[in-house]
Design a protein around this nucleic acid. Structure first.
Lengths: 126, 126
DNA sequence: GAGAAATCAGTAATCTTTACTAATTTTATT
DNA sequence: AATAAAATTAGTAAAGATTACTGATTTCTC
């Protein structure tokens, strides 16, 4: 993989947020530095980085894909109300070993997603 | 929610497969019974059934959404090679309790997705 | 059976993502 | 530093998934 300024900027955006952003959000951020970057470039690089294991996809079941620059073992919480994705320090790696041992799969990653209503949104309801 | 023949057919398709199908797949199946059903009807009913908790979304990070008629606690394995989604009898409900207790979220569901290469695809490689 | 509410079929529109192409940038080599 | 091959990009077009809309049909309640 050759160097590119665009890819560096995308990595930098992803490594400096905990918001698990979509491609569109990343595009908006990167455009501050590189105003004429193409949305296709963002998508292409996100796919390449995911393939290399440098970033992680976080599918939560809303309209679009989300990405995470933090590849250490942890879990996610998706709020159905405000649609935010937050981290939960829950290491799923034990389950990974169990799955490989019991089912014969070659497991590359485990995504553990909790869905519900977050603390802030619960507050707003009362 | 009023009765509709279309919704019954959709539920029936979902309850009689373990393949975690997409809306398009469900549409094709239901059309055998109801040839002029509309794709929009399938989407609308899937959303309504999911809201009611009668079915479950299974986001795996491919192009489209998948659905599961089995709402009992279990987990999923997504094969990156053949793109099949299979069940794993891994009950995530303990983790749910942990998340609620430690983080104050109101957790509605937990999605535990393993991603990798399934047994059959591993066989094909050799 | 009649009226109100819910649902539907069919179509159009929207949104996300991918594909394509000619131009630019990077890398390796001299 | 100049050069050629390979990788990457911007910009645009196309594809695919999902939602929105409208007038007609079906379901429910009385």
């Amino acid at each position: 993989m050759n160097y590119s300024r665009q890819r560096e900027a995308i990595i930098s955006v992803l490594k400096n947020t905990t918001s698990h952003p979509s491609a569109a959000w990343i595009y908006d951020r990167v455009r501050i530095q590189i105003p004429n970057i193409s949305l296709g470039t963002v998508y292409r690089n996100l796919a390449a980085l995911e393939k290399e294991g440098m970033i992680v996809k976080v599918p939560v079941g809303d309209a679009c894909e989300h990405f995470d620059g933090d590849t250490t073992p942890h879990s996610h919480f998706y709020c159905k109300s405000c649609e935010a994705i937050s981290d939960i320090p829950f290491d799923p790696s034990d389950a990974l070993k169990t799955a490989e041992a019991n089912h014969g799969f070659e497991v590359h990653s485990v995504t553990y997603t909790f869905t519900g209503i977050c603390k802030e949104c619960l507050k707003d309801k009362n």
